[in-house]
């Protein structure tokens, strides 16, 4: 039975415990009761979507032993290309694939640089961070792209007071994608190879894992998921903004790491990363309800990231000394 659950149950329990602790802390701090309401939870979930979908791709890359710093810029670029193609064609059937492909292509370029030029992922994607942002600004003519209203703008809206399952479509999209990525990681050869690559690249190569191909696919896949984030942000803002999502890559990486991902590779889980993303939004919501100013929020979130990772390290050390 344990084999069925590929993830380590204690690891996931840890993330849920973290979630519970955050609720408890805000409760003790005397946060308004509306913080715990179903509507607020849904709102937090909606606010999780952009980082959450991005974190799915990041989880893949981090498990494979890499990192992608360019996702924030790729979100902006995708939102711009989605907006531009919707403005030109007024068809979502064109605009949405264009947005996702923009992300996939950017990711593909990242992978190609890592594999052929043998640049460490940190640097390669740092370069892309600048390049993608620049292209987005040029493509948009250094201002926002304002296409006519589309169906996408409804993705993040939900009825207050509706039944508990009445999530807005964007949340369902996130859940579905999460299921897909989770399946990919745990129930396909591709997933097994990804864990092997992240745990020890030399071993993966020795065992005949097509390392280069796998890396390029991982970056491209992460790019595609980031593209989805870009499309969703376009829907949320109803415009393509080349300056959106600056610094989002850090939120996304933090979500994956809070969720149990190891930057050394070979570890991480989809559910964990989603919880990580949710925790980040929850903190923002809590700080808002407490009417703490923005800078305080930033400090609180920084502290939480450090603690989450420190606790994780502690658990790892104990697990390996057993």
């Amino acid at each position: 039975m344990k084999a069925l659950l590929r993830w380590n149950p204690t690891l996931i329990l840890g993330q849920f415990a973290g979630l519970a602790i955050i609720y408890l802390i805000f409760f003790l701090l005397g946060v308004p009761a509306s913080f715990f309401s179903m509507d607020n939870t849904k709102l937090v979930l909606v606010q999780t979507v952009i980082v959450g979908v991005g974190a799915l791709g990041m989880t893949l890359i981090i498990i494979g032993g890499g990192i992608d710093l360019s996702v924030g810029s790729i979100i902006a670029l995708s939102s711009v290309t989605t907006a531009l193609s919707y403005k030109a064609t007024e068809s979502l059937l064109v605009a949405v694939p264009v947005g996702i492909l923009t992300g996939a292509l950017s990711g593909f370029m990242n992978g190609l640089m890592v594999v052929t030029l043998r640049i460490v992922p940190f640097i390669a994607t740092l370069g892309t961070l600048g390049i993608a942002r620049g292209i987005a600004k040029i493509a948009a003519g250094e201002r926002t792209v304002n296409p006519p209203d589309s169906l996408l703008s409804g993705l993040m809206q939900f009825d207050r007071g509706g039944p508990f399952y009445s999530f807005p479509p964007a949340v369902w999209i996130m859940f579905l994608l999460a299921l897909g990525v989770s399946f990919l990681l745990n129930y396909t050869v591709f997933g097994r190879y990804t864990f092997a690559l992240g745990s020890n690249e030399s071993t993966a190569r020795l065992c005949g894992v097509p390392v280069a191909l796998l890396k390029v696919s991982l970056y491209a896949l992460c790019g595609a998921l980031t593209g989805v984030s870009g499309v969703l942000i376009f829907g949320q803002l109803t415009l393509g903004d080349p300056t959106v999502a600056v610094g989002k890559e850090l939120d996304i990486i933090a979500a994956a790491v809070i969720g149990g991902g190891s930057l050394a590779g070979g570890e991480g889980s989809v559910l964990g990363s989603l919880i990580g993303a949710f925790i980040m939004s929850l903190l923002r919501s809590g700080c808002l309800k407490m009417e703490w100013p923005n800078p305080v929020q930033e400090i609180v979130i920084g502290i939480i990231i450090i603690f989450a990772v420190a606790i994780d390290q502690l658990r790892h050390r104990r697990a390996s000394s057993e």
Partner: peptide, 29 residues
């Protein structure tokens, strides 16, 4: 990359590395 080695495995060759920790095994798995 790695495809060459994949072919060896498919042809029935197998290899044990002298460097167990760094190459032979993915020790965290």
């Amino acid at each position: 990359d790695g495809g060459e080695i994949r072919k060896r495995w498919q042809a029935g060759l197998g290899f044990v590395s002298e460097d167990r920790k760094n190459e032979g095994l993915a020790t965290s798995l």
